[in-house]
């Protein structure tokens, strides 16, 4: 097995190279993922290479040396590789870090911050269920029914909609008491998050991913 293939896969992910069709004839993550699997690399090793590429972009972003489009391109490239790993996820040969359900609470239409958190979570190896905006409590609990044990993220941008997080959390607690819920959004504070019973608060996508990593290391009881 050529270890260089995995290094190349990481580099292609980092640079957002999706596939040959989009890369003016140059191999992208799609082709090199197939190559790595064909060479006999384990799906877990391939996943690690993809995640490592994303991590490099994430670090550059955190250092102010890269921007969201760099992250998005890397995420797209990683998705191309993940598509080829799907059979191995389905069979259980490799596992994601968990399922992360995210949505903007009812009454609120803002979604850029939510989208950034979703993207960062996906890049960190989570399976993301993005419910969209203006989501009622039932929308979150239904998603939890379909994904028991998932972590839930709530977003709100307005002072008049941040209060809608509390009934959502209450509905989640009633339906699945062990569920971990994190919250974020411009008007929120850690104190507010504590007050409404959230398990975590972050003002930025990187912080949200750190919270998720903490939950993955210490699951709440449900199968992640």
């Amino acid at each position: 097995m050529d270890q260089g293939t995995l290094s190349r896969l990481s580099a292609l992910t980092e640079n957002g190279k999706v596939n040959r069709a989009l890369g003016r004839g140059q191999d992208g993550v799609e082709e090199v993922t197939a190559q790595a699997l064909a060479e006999g690399h384990s799906p877990a090793a391939v996943l690690e290479a993809l995640t490592a590429g994303m991590a490099v972009v994430g670090d550059r972003f955190a250092a102010g040396k890269a921007f969201v489009p760099n992250m998005l391109l890397a995420a797209r490239a990683m998705s191309a590789g993940m598509a080829l790993l799907k059979p191995f996820f389905d069979s259980g040969e490799v596992q994601r870090k968990g399922v992360f359900i995210i949505g903007t609470v009812f009454g609120d239409l803002h979604d850029i911050g939510k989208n950034l958190v979703a993207m960062a979570a996906e890049g960190a190896g989570w399976s993301v269920v993005d419910l969209g905006v203006d989501i009622q409590p039932e929308g979150f609990t239904a998603a939890l029914d379909a994904n028991p044990g998932a972590v839930v993220g709530l977003s709100a941008l307005l002072t008049t909609t941040m209060g809608n997080m509390e009934p959502v959390i209450q509905a989640i607690r009633r339906a699945r008491p062990d569920t971990r819920v994190i919250v974020g959004g411009a008007p929120l504070t850690r104190e507010f998050a504590d007050k409404i019973g959230a398990d975590g608060y972050s003002s930025n996508p990187a912080g949200a991913v750190e919270l998720l990593a903490g939950f993955a290391a210490e699951p709440s009881g449900g199968a992640l």
């Binding site: 002072t159 008049t160 941040m162 209060g163 008007p187 507010f192």
Partner: peptide, 8 residues
């Protein structure tokens, strides 16, 4: 100006 955090 806008309201403090409250339900309307």
């Amino acid at each position: 100006f806008t309201l403090p955090p409250m339900q309307v």
